[in-house]
Design a protein around this nucleic acid. Structure first.
Lengths: 166, 166
DNA sequence: GTTGAAAAGGATAAAAC
DNA sequence: GTTTTATCCTTTTCAAC
């Protein structure tokens, strides 16, 4: 699965930086109970391996711009490979579509859209429909309140040995 | 709306750090065509105002642990304030529930859950149901492919003057 | 793995423009 | 706003254990 073996300290490094991405390397070393040099080597190894793929500032959008966040359940016109491809390409071209997942189950895709207001959202959807990007039906769910937003799922739980079954 | 006026340079700083959160301050200054001192002051102002609320390393989960990501559309048993409260409190106690939004429209909440496998997901849901946290009905959508994940919606679009209507 | 040291560069603050 | 300068701290590398 993983080309790299991670021990507890690596996990600690990942968990720490996922929460405090701008920690200095000397501070990081203290947090994970390592001296600077080996900690620095581990970090470089994690970055080189692509396990840490970047660092991002968290911007509080609501502090700077009024906006609405909308989730969209989308159904395509058909399930031809070319239709999926065209749809995903179209999705990619809208910066307001901030996330997209292909789903198993009742719908083909879940989209997250962030726009200035509902009007702008509807214009985006109309545009998507007019482009014949494969979208057949869609359901709109407006976010009324962000309740929870974790940075990372619990690595220890995911990496622990799977539970025994009888 | 905002207690702080942002000019183009502030926006540039935000956009830059949202993509490259570990840029040194001198590098950042170059990117936004400012010298170190004023750039540093702007950054401190943005952090103090809570517009930048943190920095996070991006971890490539699929490189280190097998897992499934699941979206759940949830309906509560009723719409009493206490029910909402109890549900949100319950949600908060599961680290595997990595995100939760309250919705307007056909469902009450959208959840994102990350677990080791489908079994673990189902156990989490069963646990949530048994706890009588207010969950009445739920629909499960398994993520088969992450298609797009932007760091930030387009700030320039959100902050631009609203379009004229006739 | 560890410490310690040393060179290079970045962060911060104050001056003067 | 800018540059310059000064100081201090962090990063990074290296040698030695």
């Amino acid at each position: 699965m993983s080309p790299i073996k991670l021990d507890e300290r690596d996990i600690k490094i990942l968990a720490t930086l996922s929460r405090e991405g701008r920690l200095s390397k000397s501070e990081l070393a203290k947090r994970v109970n390592l001296s600077a040099t080996p900690c620095w080597e581990r970090l470089r190894r994690l970055e080189k391996a692509g396990i840490i793929s970047g660092y991002h500032a968290q911007i509080e959008l609501r502090q700077i711009a009024p906006h609405v966040s909308v989730f969209v359940m989308a159904e395509l016109e058909n399930h031809r490979a070319s239709t999926f491809q065209a749809f995903e390409k179209a999705i990619d071209s809208y910066p307001e579509i901030t996330a997209c997942w292909a789903l198993g189950g009742g719908f083909d895709y879940l989209l997250q859209v962030v726009t200035r207001d509902i009007d702008s959202y509807q214009r985006l959807i109309d545009d998507l429909l007019q482009r014949r990007a494969g979208l057949a039906r869609y359901f709109t769910y407006i976010v009324t309140k962000p309740v929870k937003q974790a940075v990372l799922p619990p690595l220890d739980v995911l990496l622990a040995a799977p539970p025994k079954r009888k």
